[in-house]
Computed example of a mutant assay.
Amino acid sequence: MGETAILTTFGATLFALLNPLGMLPVFMGYTEGLGPGVQRWLALFVALTVLGLILVFLLAGTSIIDFFGITLDSFRLAGGILLLSIGIRIVTAEPGKAAKDLVAMTELGAVAEAKSVYRRIVVPFAMPLLVGPGVIANLILHAGQARAIKSDTLLIGMVLVSVGICALTFVILLAGRLLRRLLGDVGLSIMTRVLGLLVASIGMQFVVTGVTNVIVQSIAPQVLKLH
């Protein structure tokens, strides 16, 4: 698989797993009643937090699994099963109700009020609702793939793609009200399920690749002994 194809798969998987469209009802629930300025700052804070988490796991995730002595194929199998289960859950789940734990309105400025709301929703909204186990597994797997082929260019490309995906997440959260008016609840539900199907398919591909690698690595030594 070429680097362009890997980057395309990485970007599509990351966007599908973050699922900012599916999280729109939750974000809109948290920001209902807040001013436009507060909503903009809050969307920016969430997007920057998501980017920071992604970069940590993308750049250091492989070192973490090496420290614990986990092989990439073992992690690929576990991550694939996890992605498959998450995808199935996204496709079959009932549409989530927006959260109603709202912060009381105050006379604070937009930035200060956004910080107040952010402290209350960063967990669980930024993590684990956006950056969940599936995202972490996906980041570690793709970073390991870049290091396996010793391509710094590919790793830098993944960082740039991550920045772009987080920027898109910011735009989606910022335009939540407009997107909901355009797509409607049914449209958002359909989009969420399409993303879930993509996640399940990629998870199955991880499982197939992991099983294939394990079988090849087990059979190859036996074949060499016969010769």
Rank of each mutant, 00 (worst) to 15 (best):
28 M>W: 03
111 V>W: 11
53 L>N: 06
1 M>E: 11
37 G>C: 08
73 D>W: 11
102 L>F: 09
25 P>N: 04
69 G>D: 09
184 G>A: 05
195 L>Y: 06
51 L>M: 09
1 M>V: 10
71 T>F: 04
6 I>C: 11
108 L>T: 12
108 L>M: 15
96 G>L: 12
212 T>L: 13
51 L>N: 06
2 G>K: 07
192 T>E: 09
168 L>T: 07
119 R>P: 15
27 F>C: 04
122 V>K: 02
20 P>V: 04
207 V>I: 07
65 I>W: 05
96 G>P: 15
79 G>N: 05
163 V>A: 11
128 P>Y: 01
87 G>S: 02
58 L>P: 01
62 T>W: 08
203 G>K: 02
198 L>A: 14
69 G>T: 08
14 L>M: 06
93 A>M: 09
209 T>C: 10
135 V>H: 04
9 T>M: 15
12 A>I: 13
178 L>D: 15
14 L>Y: 03
103 V>Q: 12
1 M>A: 12
193 R>S: 05
55 L>T: 00
165 I>A: 05
168 L>K: 06
77 L>I: 05
16 A>Q: 06
76 R>E: 13
208 V>C: 07
144 G>K: 06
208 V>N: 09
57 F>D: 04
227 H>M: 10
37 G>Q: 08
227 H>A: 13
13 T>Y: 09
85 S>I: 14
83 L>I: 02
189 S>Q: 15
208 V>M: 09
212 T>Y: 11
